[in-house]
Nucleic acid binder design. Structure first.
Length: 489
RNA sequence: GCCCCGUUGGUGUAGUGGCCUAACACGCCUGCCUUUCACGCAGGAGAUCACCGGUUCAAAUCCGGUACGGGGUACCA
């Protein structure tokens, strides 16, 4: 009875907060499925809750998707703009005997719930509104904040409502477990249950790919479809993403919104690749995949039915791997961007460096820090010492074990002479000469190299010594060595 | 409480009845490389496939129960 075989899917977040990692993963699955099947991906904003609505979060959703390169073919469609559609369907349902008006107050509901809990019965609406027989006219005349009236769906008292989930197979719920649920709130807005069913039907959605938290309300959705005599879409309930302690992913587990990962210096390709592998796998051993590979391999059948724990360390590793695959020009731009961000916020390098010098320096530093970078937020730290000639160094740091201070001083002095004299200021050349010098001074290479590294960088770890020296330059290298001699004296 | 879904090393996954003496990746450890760090390379530790029972000549794989985890139980999505 399907009117079309065309694949149409949607991502339908509600604008009530940041788009978190779990939501992003759901968006990715929808989008990949559409891409893999030449289908249509639709963005729909489910903003029917006026109380929780937050304009900023809609922007956050959109910029998150943009950042990740997830483009929608239709939308964004906002449910708040189509209120009449839902009201119309809700009234149809009333006329057909599938729904009714109910003016039970929240106080009454609360009282009912308390009583049920007291009697150790499952808390559930008792369907009392069915017998009130409120008419359209009475509703129109009386519904107000003082006398709120909702529309509820009339759920059959017995029987079962099985449905087929593409990941889990047949799932069945007893209808006696389900009470008459609200489909139109007293403010005239639909609940999720009604709104999404109407929209998915209007938009001819073929597959509903959504989080597992929806699985237990699916029978209601099937019920509405049946009452309206609409075709059922295919249901695909994807597992949730959990934090390290197996609880629902939250702020406690590190960054949780997609945009925070952008801020922290992750590459969107890496995040996407990583998230695609949470709850899905292509079945081969390949993990680092470009977009077209992922699309090519993506099938719903290979989505798992159990939740995955989010592992930030593995994401970091994957990001580093993507960074190493960038070419130097691209990487340079990312690093520069990060540095500029830091300068603006008054962080590292805020002593203002001429922007032309900054650009050329960063591009020569880039190859040196490339395989030391896991996220761009580390850029400033890794790059910092290339820009300053004077930094505080503790005397002890300059002295390796079993070497006397005067030996180092002598070594550094000779080094300076050597640097002044040397014709080609190139890493290979420098290394050969330095090794010879160490020998002449009766020092092991390491004994001499160690203080040089400290003198040049202020740190005990850095990129290869002579490459670093080359980027620092002849003049600055001399200054720094000189500085170290002064500290030792 | 009740309902639904799930359960392979610490984590993500592979495995769909014999090839499993359980594979790959992250993480961890050791060594090599680099006289530093990282990258890379070579190794290693780590899983009685949640448990119990059944089906079968044969089970991580099929069935049932138990335990544990997750989700739901709103005029939220």
């Amino acid at each position: 009875m399907n009117n079309t075989d065309k694949i149409r899917v949607r991502f339908a977040p509600s604008p009530t907060g940041n788009l978190h990692i779990g939501g992003v993963r759901t968006a990715i699955f929808n989008w990949l499925f559409a891409k893999a099947n030449n289908g249509t991906f639709i963005l729909r904003i489910e903003d029917t809750d006026q109380n929780r609505y937050d304009k900023d979060s809609e922007d956050s959703i959109i910029s998150s998707l943009n950042w990740l390169g997830i483009k929608w073919d239709e939308g964004p469609i906002r449910q708040s703009e189509k209120q009449e559609d839902y009201i119309k369907v809700a009234k149809e349902l009333i006329d057909a005997g599938w729904a009714y008006y109910d003016d039970t107050t929240s106080e009454e509901l609360e009282e009912l719930r308390k009583q049920q809990i007291r009697e150790k019965r499952p808390p559930r609406y008792d369907n009392r509104g069915r017998y009130k027989e409120i008419t359209h006219e009475q509703y129109n005349a009386n519904n107000s904040t003082l006398n709120p009236i909702v529309i509820r769906f009339k759920v059959p008292d017995s029987g079962a409502k099985p449905f087929y989930d593409e990941i889990r197979g047949n799932v069945s719920f007893d209808l006696k477990e389900i009470d008459d649920f609200v489909i139109l709130k007293s403010d005239g807005m639909p609940t999720y249950h009604l709104a999404h069913v109407v929209d998915d039907h209007e938009m001819k959605i073929s597959h509903i790919i959504r989080g597992e938290e929806w699985i237990s309300s699916t029978p209601r959705h099937v019920l509405i479809h049946d009452a309206l005599d609409w075709n059922l879409p295919k249901y695909v309930h994807v597992p949730l993403i959990l934090g390290k302690d197996k609880s629902k992913l939250s702020k406690r587990h590190g960054a949780e919104s997609a945009l925070e990962y952008k801020e922290k210096g992750y590459l969107p390709e890496a995040l996407l690749n990583f998230l695609a592998l949470l709850g899905w796998s292509p079945g081969d051993n390949k993990e680092i995949m470009n977009l077209s590979e992922i699309i090519e391999k993506f099938t719903i059948k290979r989505i798992l039915g159990h939740p995955a724990v989010f592992d930030p360390e593995k994401l970091e590793w994957m990001n580093g791997s993507y960074i190493r695959n960038l070419n130097d020009e691209e990487l340079s731009k990312y690093i520069l961007n990060e540095i500029n961000k830091d300068i603006k916020s008054g962080g590292l390098l805020s002593d203002s460096v001429d922007s032309n010098i900054l650009i050329s320096k960063i591009s020569s530093i880039t190859p040196l820090i490339k395989e030391r970078l896991k996220t761009f937020s580390e850029s400033s730290y890794l790059v910092e010492y290339f820009f300053y000639d004077n930094f505080k160094i503790e005397k002890e740091k300059l002295l390796p074990k079993k070497v006397e201070s005067f030996q180092i001083i002598e070594g550094l002095k000779k080094l300076i002479e050597l640097i002044i004299k040397i014709e080609e200021f190139e890493p290979e050349n420098l290394e050969v000469q330095f090794r010879k010098l160490a020998e002449d001074l009766n020092l092991k290479a390491g004994q001499l190299f160690f203080p040089i590294r400290i003198a040049l960088t202020g740190r005990k770890e850095s990129p290869p010594l002579f490459d670093t020296m080359k980027v620092i330059g002849r003049e600055s290298s001399i200054k720094r060595l000189d500085n170290a001699i002064n500290i030792l004296n």
